[in-house]
Amino acid sequence: MLKKERAARVLERLEELYPETPIPLDYADPFTLLVAVVLSAQCTDKKVNEITPELFRQAPTAKAMWKLGEQQILEIIRPLGLSKQKAKSLARLSEIIETEHNGRVPETFEALELLPGVGHKTASVVMSQAFGHPAFPVDTHIHRLAQRWGLTNGKNVSQTEADLKKLFPETSWNKLHLQIIFYGREHCTARGCDGTRCAICRELYPNRKRPVETKKA
Rank of each mutant, 00 (worst) to 15 (best):
L115I: 08
H120Y: 11
P60Q: 03
G81H: 02
G150T: 13
V157D: 00
V157N: 03
R104G: 01
L80D: 02
K63G: 12
N102Y: 10
R148T: 10
Q71R: 15
G103W: 04
L80Q: 01
T99G: 12
N156E: 04
R92E: 10
G69M: 00
R148N: 13
V125L: 14
G81F: 01
T152P: 09
K86V: 06
F136A: 13
I142C: 12
G117K: 11
L151R: 10
E100D: 14
Q72S: 11
S158E: 09
G81P: 00
T140C: 02
A62T: 00
K63A: 14
N156P: 04
E113Q: 15
P116L: 14
H133M: 14
T99K: 14
V138I: 11
G150K: 10
A111C: 02
L74N: 09
P79C: 13
H101T: 15
K88Q: 13
D139E: 10
E75P: 07
P79T: 07
F136I: 14
T152D: 04
P137Q: 05
I97P: 08
K155W: 05
F136V: 14
A111G: 02
N102G: 15
I76V: 13
H143F: 11
E75A: 15
G150R: 14
S94K: 07
K88N: 11
L74C: 06
N156T: 08
L74Y: 06
M127G: 14
E98I: 09
G150V: 15
P116A: 13
E98C: 08
A111V: 05
S128W: 09
K67C: 00
G81S: 06
D139H: 08
N102I: 09
L112G: 07
T108N: 04
G69S: 01
G81V: 04
